[in-house]
């Protein structure tokens, strides 16, 4: 398999998860698609000659930086009053759930989505990279450019917050 095909398979294997990760972070499908597209282009242009085993960390690191830049620009636009449309979606903490509804898988999925979206960005990123992409603590730290200790802290805080949500909703395992 040549490099082009290997890259194609790699990008195909990460694109959906990357889109979900970006969409959770920016709460906008089109913006999330743009961020994933930019990350794909940067990976291909700058790192296609690297060992394919390094691609996953490089790709998520690029995406992480793209999301960070997007958030910063959104913050500045909001601060300067330049936002025509709402960029930052405020977390919805007032989700009323009937405990009986929690037997319904769709309701649980929807609630979990809202809860993940409401996590602070770094907790959300650490949690999704670990649980959804399956990166270990060291790899997640490399992607997020922080120490493994920070990743552990973000991860456990995210878990605690989700546990609190589930308990409030009356979920029983």
């Amino acid at each position: 398999m040549d490099n082009q095909q290997t890259l194609d398979s790699f990008l195909a294997s990460v694109e959906k998860k990357a889109f979900q990760l970006a969409e959770f972070a920016v709460a906008d499908k089109d913006e999330a698609l743009d961020l994933v597209q930019n990350s794909m282009i940067k990976l291909v242009q700058k790192y296609s000659d690297r060992d394919p085993e390094q691609w996953i960390l490089l790709f998520y690191r690029i995406l992480h930086n793209e999301i960070k830049d997007w958030k910063r620009k959104a913050w500045v636009r909001g601060w300067l009053g330049m936002n025509d449309d709402q960029v930052e979606v405020l977390p919805d903490h007032s989700v009323a759930v009937n405990p009986e509804q929690l037997c319904d898988a769709e309701v649980i999925n929807e609630q979990m989505h809202k809860a993940i979206r409401a996590l602070p960005m770094r907790q959300q990123q650490a949690f999704l990279l670990r649980v959804w992409e399956g990166l270990d603590v060291k790899q997640t730290a490399q992607v997020m450019q922080c120490t493994p200790g920070s990743v552990k802290t973000h991860y456990s805080r995210a878990l605690e917050r989700l546990r609190l949500n589930l308990t409030e909703w009356g979920y029983e395992a």
Binding site: K17, Q20, I108, H113, L128, V131, W132, A173
Partner: peptide
């Protein structure tokens, strides 16, 4: 609620939306 249960719920939820 154990960590494994929460992780499992999140994985299922994300897989379903994927």
């Amino acid at each position: 609620i154990s960590d494994q249960v929460i992780e499992g719920l999140v994985r299922r939820s994300l897989q379903s939306s994927s």
